[in-house]
Nucleic acid binder design. Structure first.
Lengths: 210, 210
DNA sequence: ATGCGGTCCTGCAAGTTTGCATTACTGCAT
DNA sequence: ATGCAGTAATGCAAACTTGCAGGACCGCAT
């Protein structure tokens, strides 16, 4: 649960404010569309100042999708890394991480999750722009990608390791985006298949390329 | 030459204004840094209103690097496509196109080109953010990628063709970015090698992946 | 309970970017 | 030369985003 994280008053307040912002953002987008859901309006509804909004989220879109700023996914990532990906296909791991970042807020209520699904369906641009800034802003993600690749025997540990990590990460992001787009177009079921679909897309692409 | 494109007065004026904006942007960035080079300052120096600035370029950074808005690279792309890429490796073609978009302004004076090199070296973030928005905003690029891939026998022509095009394009963009980063770090020579380097990076990555 | 150090919230101002409406200019036909 | 239609330039306002500075609040030691 997101609302009773760790017992300090400060932490509780932060969690509550975060939840209020996410709820406000999602409700306003569903009710009035993404253009009418301005930062001012969201902040108003969440009971904070617009300046404070940006202390909680990097952008309007991040708030809508519930993507915590850089430090927030720390947990998700460490978790996945700790979950021993030894011998696993780095592509599978990375696709999982990328999809996981998009799901930072998935500890939230099922109501929120359902609403977000609807939003992504109706306004795919939002997810698109967020995915675009993923590979750009999230240096951390790149570090993790490099770390994962360095744990794979197939990848040499030379000076180009970082460059390769960037390339593989970009591939994974693009695949996740493609999988989401497909899911958004067809009135399909829910997400767990999305990661598998992304991996499958990468594999067929690679098979064609080589 | 960019300043004597097609003889209509209108076209000449447009070309001249474009050139003035690019020159102003580059000079200001070199003199005062990217933060001090505001849109207002650039527009002032170019003798236009700040609003007009955005009729010529999509963003401050695009102006600095001389990247024309979506329609601008039409020519570059058509040219490359016309130059018969039959039987050529789609990766090579795409890397060329991506690098080409970054060089839209390369018809400009050699002075401008040298200054831009210096800017990219000193402020790599600019190139980074531009590359990030490439795969996001440039729908056209994606279309071309799909077209190129559809011309290659190895790629099936099924429903996933667009998804695969997105993945390959993302790979190429990431590779070009990596190649540029490398070039920016080492006090290396000039650009023609960058495309080859990007292709090489992709190939070693693929070899490791499969 | 009080006070201290650190964190958080807020207002303000600057900068980027876009939409809309108004005005000016170019290209072309008369 | 004149006028018309389309295109370009501009001003204006709104929205997003970030840095800075002042004040409020929380956690903790005394």
């Amino acid at each position: 649960m997101r609302t009773t994280e760790r017992c300090s008053l400060r932490d509780r307040k932060r969690a509550e404010t975060t939840a209020r912002i996410e709820a406000a953002a999602v409700e306003l987008v569903l009710r009035d569309g993404p253009d009418a859901a301005t930062v001012d309006a969201i902040s108003d509804r969440a009971g904070i100042s617009p300046r404070t909004f940006f202390n909680y989220f990097d952008s309007k879109d991040s708030a809508i999708l519930g993507i915590q700023p850089d430090g927030g996914d720390e947990l998700v990532l460490e978790e996945r890394l700790a979950a021993g990906h030894e011998g696993e296909d780095p592509v599978v791991v990375l696709v999982g991480v990328v999809a996981g970042v998009l799901r930072t807020g998935s500890g939230a209520s099922s109501r929120l999750r359902r609403d977000r699904e609807a939003i992504i369906r109706r306004h795919p641009e939002i997810l698109g722009s967020q995915l675009a800034s993923l590979s750009a802003r999230k240096t951390r993600l790149l570090e993790y990608a490099a770390r994962i690749l360095s744990g794979d025997v197939r990848f040499p540990d030379d000076a180009d390791a970082d460059a390769r990590a960037g390339i593989v990460l970009a591939m994974c992001v693009a695949a996740v985006k493609a999988a989401f787009d497909e899911w958004a177009r067809s009135a399909a079921p829910v997400d767990p298949q999305i990661e598998e679909r992304a991996v499958a897309l990468i594999h067929t692409t690679l098979r064609s390329l080589v």
